[in-house]
Design a protein around this nucleic acid. Structure first.
Lengths: 230, 230
DNA sequence: TCCGGCGATTGATCTGCATCAACAACATCT
DNA sequence: AGATGTTGTTGATGCAGATCAATCGCCGGA
């Protein structure tokens, strides 16, 4: 399960590495090391000093912020190709832990910064990735602030489907590796409301629920709910 | 009210311009033009093709997304020094309009991209700004998903105070140029709940309400609410 | 001065989702 | 097989905030 070279990396196409040529790729590989985390393990924690950046190689992570009284908001899920860490901010802004087994490329912060400094291509790619991330965050604000439970669930399913197909993981069944509680904390709902809403969507023939995920039976209906045309 | 040179620009210190030397600044000024919008005017609209980037010079803008049925989520307010527009995304992801009178520096997208391409300093600054923006967006997700109305209002006031003082606009009275409806659409509430919550905070001696803004009377209490220690 | 409109406030009522509670479906261990 | 823990589902009830509605203050225009 260890990746011996960047050349045949499955995340190569969508990660920041896409901005690099063969030589640079080898150079960057020198700085990096592969790390693996088992299900539930914490990769880094909010407010800790960030000493590394990461690029997700395989698996899913939940990224979340906690309030002092332990309310939790999952600000996003990270998938292969996603970059974790923000240049210019000394601390981690959120915690990250593994949903199922995860592998990552780890880059020491300073050496990565030095490497990136003189490579406008890479910097542009990073601006671009940050921009996409920001756009997703803003879309999620609409969801959290202005949508009903049913729209939230439908939106989440459609968005998750699109992200997976964007990294070549589309398929008939939509895998949901995270737990109901994770979905609830991502959508600003409780676990009971998530469960009830899944059940309602199944009763209405929009989805079919399996242990490992769901199948979208009535995609147009789900997309309409997701778009907010209820 | 027209800014004749970047040299004495009041937003110079916090805008992307901070990453440039005198020569580059003059060169960038060649590409830019100053534009002004009256209160309520739309600077650009969601889903339109983005032909320009902007840097806010003076005033406040509301940045928002609309659902088809006209529900609105204000994803943020832009202040002097903020950069509007995301390289790598062809369309505007949100609409922006002026809250009160606003002046901006406008940069044609391609010429700005060409200018930035070979200036790693500027690119790094943009990554940094995007990172800060992203961190703010994530903090706002916590607010939208996991906080009570009272915490939302307190959080908003404290956050607004901090942003203003960050650009040298701190003061006894905290100006709120936006309307109650804007605040409601920013915090995922209704106008009535915003009004009631302001009233409650005033009754409790936390704030004092004026036409133009509020004064924080019990800052520690407001900060506690804002932190979620209710 | 009166009128009309806009924004803000306040009150009465309703409702979507949270909360509280029980239970079911499975997996893991002894 | 039985005991125990974990995750998910479903039902009953409560409440924070939405909705509906009235009123107020203020400003600008006739």
């Amino acid at each position: 399960m260890h990746c011996r070279s960047c050349h045949d990396c499955t995340a190569r196409g969508f990660a920041i590495c896409a901005a690099l040529d063969e030589t640079e790729l080898r150079e960057l590989a020198q700085l990096s090391r592969h790390v693996r985390f088992e299900s539930g393990a914490t990769v880094f924690a909010q407010a800790n000093i960030a000493t590394s950046f990461f690029s997700v190689h395989a698996g899913t992570l939940r990224l979340y912020k906690l309030l002092p009284d332990s309310r939790r908001q999952i600000v996003g899920f990270a998938l292969p190709g996603d970059f974790l860490g923000l240049p210019g901010l000394p601390h981690h802004e959120f915690s990250a832990d593994a949903v199922g087994r995860v592998t990552l490329c780890q880059f020491p912060k300073e050496s990565f910064a030095t490497f990136a400094e003189k490579r406008p291509q890479l910097l542009r790619r990073m601006v671009e990735l940050a921009g996409h991330e920001l756009a997703r965050a803003q879309e999620h604000m609409v969801l959290l602030g202005r949508r009903s439970a049913e729209e939230k669930i439908a939106s989440f399913l459609i968005g998750w489907r699109d992200r997976l197909s964007g990294i070549g993981r589309g398929g008939e069944i939509l895998p949901l590796p995270m737990k109901r509680l994770d979905i609830a904390d991502h959508l600003g709902l409780t676990i009971e409301t998530v469960s009830r809403t899944f059940s309602k969507l199944e009763r209405d023939g929009v989805i079919q629920i399996f242990a490992s995920g769901v199948v979208l039976l009535d995609t147009p209906r789900a997309e309409a709910l997701s778009a907010g045309v209820s």
